[in-house]
Structure formats: C-alpha cells, structure tokens
Design a protein around this nucleic acid. Sequence first.
RNA 1: GCACCCGUAGCUCAGUCGGAUAGAGCAUCAGAUUCCUAAUCUGAGGGCCACAGGUUCGAAUCCUGUCGGGUGCACCA
Length: 574
Amino acid sequence: MTIYSRFAAHVDSALDALVAAGELPAQTVRAGVTVEPPRDAAHGDLATNAAMVLARQAKTNPRALAVQIAAELEKIEEVKAAEIAGPGFINLRLSDSCWIAGLAEIARLGPDYGRSDMGAGRTVNVEYVSANPTGPMHMGHVRGAVVGDALASLLEFAGHKVVREYYINDAGGQVDTLARSAHLRYREALGEDIGAIPEGLYPGDYLVPTGVRLAEKFGDAYKDANESEWLVLFREEAVNDMMDMIRADLALLGIVHDEFASEAQLHVEGKAEAAEAELRSRDLVYDGILEAPKGKTLNDWEPVELPLFRSTKFGDDQDRPIRKSDGKWTYFGADLAYHFQKLQNADELIDIWGADHAGTVKRIKAAVAALAGEDAKFDVKLVQMVKLLRDGEPIKMSKRSGTFVTLKEVVDEVGKDAVRFTMLTRKADAQMEFDFAKVVEASRDNPVFYVQYAHARIQSMLRKAAADGITPSDTHLDTLGAEEIALIQQAAQFPRIVESAAQSREPHRIAFYLNDLSAAFHGFYNLGNDRPEKRILMADNAEMTAARLFLAQNIGQTIANGLAIMGVEAANEM
RNA sequence: GCACCCGUAGCUCAGUCGGAUAGAGCAUCAGAUUCCUAAUCUGAGGGCCACAGGUUCGAAUCCUGUCGGGUGCACCA
C-alpha cells in the first residue's frame, strides 16, 4: 500500500468521523476528493482538497470545514501537522518514519515496486505497428511501435492482462502488387534480364532474396506461367518473407508481438460476411450511392451503388462502403469484422494508429459500437508524425525513389535505448522532431543518458562500497536527514505516476518522471561536493554509509522499474 | 469547404477529468572538479499560457468563436 492510498483511507476515516458527529450529511458524495503531493513542496508533504469539494454539501464554507477535517487528521500518529491554506487546502506534514517506511517498501517489492492491481486482471488487446507486409519497417513506423509497446508494458505493470497484436493486411491490392514484384525478382533469379522495375511495382532490393528463394523452391515452374497460376502462391510466400523481415526489424527495438492476425484468414473464415449479415439485419448496412468527394476534383468519379454502413448514425460525416464495386471487401469492411473478433477475446481494445488515419477513427468506432454495443471498450490512440532532422536540417524522404530511412538504419545509428526513450519524451498526440545529432548527444539535454547515468552512478557506488566491504543496510535508516527524505518522497510518487499514466494511456509520463527522479538524485549526489558530511560513501561512518547506500540502491531500483516499462536498459556503467 | 491534432519562456517541450506564486532542459549570465563517475550540480535573468468572449469561489486546463501550424478527407491501405 502506498503512502497516497493509505492517506486517502485516512481522509476517508476522518470524514466518517465527521459524519458520525453529525457535522457532515451521511449521504455526502466524496467523488473528487484527492490526496496528492502539493505543487509546491514548501506547503507540506501531502495535500487534500476534501474541504473545498465537500463544503457545499456540508452547507458551510471550505475553510470552516477544513478546520474540522484537519482536527481529525491531526489525531493520526504519522501526521506531524495539518495546516489549512489558501481557499481550503489541508496540508499535511508527515513524520520521517512514515517516509522511511516507504523506502523499506521499495526494497521489499524490488522489481515489483510500482506494480498496481488497477487493471484487476482485465484483458486489454493493444494492436500496434500493423505495417503493410510489403517491405521493411521505416522511420514512419517507429514512433507508433515504441508508444504501443511501452503502453502495453505500462498496462501490464498496472495490473492488466495484455495481448500485443499485429494485424497483417495480407488481403488488399497492395499484396498482389507485392506478389507481382516478387515474381519479377523470381524471374531475375532465374537468369532473366528484367531491366528497370516497371512503374507500380515495388522497386526495393529487399525482394531480391525472396526471388532467389522462390527460384530455389519452385525452379522455373512458374517462370512463364499465367499470373492466375502463381499469384496466390507467390503472395503467400512473399508476405511470409516480409513478415519475417518485419519481425526481425521489430526485434531490433525489442518488440515482440503475441498475436499476428491475418486479414486473409479473416475472409477465409467468413467473418466479414457474418458481420455484414448481422448489420444488414439491423438495417445498419444498406445498398446506396456515395456522394462525390468534396474539396478535391476527381476526373474518374462516377456514382455506383455499394453496400454502405450507416456510420452517420454514429457521428461520421458519411456512410462508408464495406465492399468495393467488384464485390471484394474494403479495408474498412474487413476491419470492422476484425475488431468484432478481437472483442470476443478481450475486455478492452486499444489501437495505435498513425495520425494520417485520423479520418477513419469515427467510422471504426461507429462500427464497433454497432456490432458490440455502445459500452464496448475501444479506444484509438493516434500517434503524430515525426519530423526527421540532422543538425536541424530536415531529412528528405521519398518513397518513390526508395530513399526512406529504415528502422534498422535508425537503430544502427543511435541505438535501441535512445530511439525508444526519445520517442517517449513527447506526448503521442503532438508532433515531434527527431534530430539524429541530438539523440546521440550524451548530455543533460538528452534524457536517455541523463537517466541511465543516474542508474549507472548508483551501481558504481554500490560496486565501490562492496569492494570496501560495505553493503546497503536498513538498520540505521534513522540517520537519514531532510535531503534524503526529500529523495524518498520523490521515489514514493512512482506508483501513482504508473497509475495515472496507465489510466490516461500516456507512457510518456514515465519518461518525464524518471527525468525528475534522476535530477533529484544527481542533485543529492552533488551535495557531497560542498558538504562532505552529505556524501553517500563516508569512510569514517559505516552505519550512515550503509543507510545512504540503501537509499541509493532503492532509487536505482525505482529508475530501473520505470525504464523496464519503457523497454530501455538500465545501464550499470557508462 | 469539412473533420481531427497542436499553439505555454528566445528554442525544444511538461503541466490540461478546474485548484495555491505556471515548470524543466537547451541557449544566455555567474559559480562549483585536491571530492562517491563534471555524461553532474548550484544560482540568476527570461511568460498577456495564440486572441476574444463565456461558465464559477477559482480557468493554461471546461464551452463558443477567431487566427496560426500540421494531418486527413477514394471503392486506397
């Protein structure tokens, strides 16, 4: 139990006492009452807004009610003082022993410190990456991949059962193009001069090995065959190769999915037909004609009757086709069936999408609501674009010429940890810049190194002390002073940071917290420069050294736990 | 034209289910290394929270509108 949850209970008891004394109406609604660290540490250790939130219900003014609540809270052993401030905040000062107990708690829990049961074991399916299986991962995929992966870890740490899922778009026109491109490389591998790659096919070299592999596997059986003889086969073969490549790319970032769902398989199982039948029976799908797109002129647009989903009933600006005029499924048509299927095996769904798909959020949410009910838990998290820079200059990317920056190139240049950490130093729904020069820079400006350095510094001290025969010990924690307590207070926040980050699905909060905690530690460490009596390793005081090492060790543990959520290594030396 | 995201210090960004004097890094200026890793630390200056209304005890935070930046607006995926 954290200090915060314990005091939330204390405040609750204090309110109970007031109800019993007839000072508060029995049916007082306590929603909105919080116990938090005050914004300004000078105000105290904890603050509650209880009096301000409840004053109206108690038919009194906040400060008068605060006096009564504060009187109750002062009866608690751990409370040194309860002061009323501002419009009616109650600021609590806690005894040092209270914080020292918090430190012992970190040590007791170790790698589990900060873990929460908030999720109550509910299953959350997090779908992320889901890049088309037509080529290697590039920079455009990286942010979503990292954010999705960190969010999955965060939710896991917060007590959810998490499924990490990848949706393979292996049924659309793009994989036919892939198959044709692979066939070309296959002919090339058989010795044919294929010349320049024709417009409309994938030109990348990454298909060369696939061509070679297909030549070895099939010989010249399909060399001059009609497309209908090899298209399905080559599509399957090429998609498998691409997925192997994508899995290898993701592994460079430490990302491993639990499930790979195939769109093609979905169709084999008739899921889309089933969804359509269901929706038609409820008049949510009908045959209709789309209006011409606004805001742009299309030369080849002509009205066609298509099966449309009534997404306008759910706030979309247009009904959306689920099949094309050739009878094949649209991406949306398959996607709604896919989401319905996912909901069968999870309590909650989260999709991580690139911001360029923002326009399709409404329709898929509408479809999920229609198929699974309005209260189905489904959220789409949009991840904004990353602007790539080198020394402040934009890096030009062009898919056409094939000069996009691949994930592998980025990881090779700056390293997995720097990529992951940097991608989490900005909230997902805001655009970010990624400057190669800055990301590899080892300085205060770069939180990756700053946080890792704090951890490495702690490990270094522990090694040095061990060499001198001193190990961390909790037997003399009463020697810790005000500066040490302040550090514990910072570490004590970790569990609530985890919960609030998980609640709001914002893994970047962990990164910012670790930066703050590391700053607190570096500051504490440097106290010893001017004040030798504040040094952690003190040759003439083994007891105090052991106590401070114990503190440092658990700050290190907290940092390591946070980094683990982010998927970043906790460096032991730098 | 419509939809979504963003607008906070010179720069890059936190803070937004309403709370106290709006924070951090970089940059600028002034300091700290006979000392546990200076990849660090201490201090100073720097703000009309885009703008205008509204809601209320209280608004960077919620609502409406305006302006500015980005993204999207196929039967693509």
